[in-house]
Amino acid sequence: MLPVLRKILSAAVFGAAMSCATGALAGDPIIGTWKTEPDRKDLISHIQITACGGKFCGKILSAYDKSGKEVQTKNIGKRLFWDVASEGGGKYGGGEFWVPLVNVEAVPTMALDGDQLKVKGCSHHICGHQTWTRL
C-alpha cells in the first residue's frame, strides 16, 4: 500500500473510532445539568456535564443566591472540570477539577447514584465534597 494511502486510511479509521467513542459517551448517565450544594458564599450553581474528547468535562452554566435569584459571577461559562473518565459502575475519576473559591486544581472523583452525583476533589491532603442533584 502506498504510504500516503496508508496515512489517509489510518486517519479515517482513527476518526471513526473517536466518533464511536464520543457517541457512546453521549448516552452516559452523568451527561446533563446538575445543581450543586451551596458553597461558602451561599451560591448554588448549575453545572453542565458533556462528553469531551472521549472523556467528560463540566462547565458552570449559572449561579443563584439562597433566595433562588440568579446572580452573575466571573466564573459563569468557565470549565469546572475536564478529562474525567468513566471507571465503570457509576464511578468517575482522573482529570482535573478547578475549585473557584480558592483557585486551586484538585483531583476529582465522582460517584453516580440515580439522580445524585457525589463529587469529591482533593489537592494534596485537603479534600472537599458535595452531592449534586440532576436538574
Rank of each mutant, 00 (worst) to 15 (best):
G90L: 07
N103F: 01
K91T: 13
S67T: 15
F81V: 10
K55C: 10
E70P: 08
G54D: 02
G58K: 09
K59F: 08
S86E: 04
A106M: 14
K66N: 11
L101E: 15
S86H: 06
S67F: 02
I60V: 15
E105F: 13
K55S: 14
V104W: 03
E87L: 15
G54C: 04
G68I: 07
N75K: 06
N103Y: 01
L61T: 10
G68H: 02
G89Q: 06
W98L: 14
V102S: 12
K74G: 12
K59P: 00
E96D: 13
E105P: 00
G94K: 02
P100Y: 03
K59N: 11
L80D: 02
C57R: 12
V102H: 10
A106N: 07
K55F: 00
K74P: 08
T73M: 06
G54F: 02
D83L: 04
S62K: 11
G90V: 08
V99R: 13
F97M: 14
K78W: 01
S62Y: 00
E105G: 12
A63R: 12
F97R: 09
P100C: 06
V71M: 05
V99T: 09
E96I: 10
F81R: 09
G88N: 10
T73V: 12
G90R: 06
P100D: 03
P100G: 04
R79Q: 12
C57S: 14
G93V: 05
A106G: 07
A85E: 14
K91D: 11
K91F: 03
V107T: 15
C57T: 02
K74R: 10
K69V: 12
K74Q: 11
V107G: 12
G53H: 07
K91A: 13
I76E: 09
I60T: 11
G94H: 05
G53I: 05
N75M: 09
G90C: 06
G68W: 01
K74F: 01
G94P: 09
N103M: 10
G77I: 11
N75P: 00
F97I: 06
G88D: 08
L101C: 05
G54Y: 03
I76M: 04
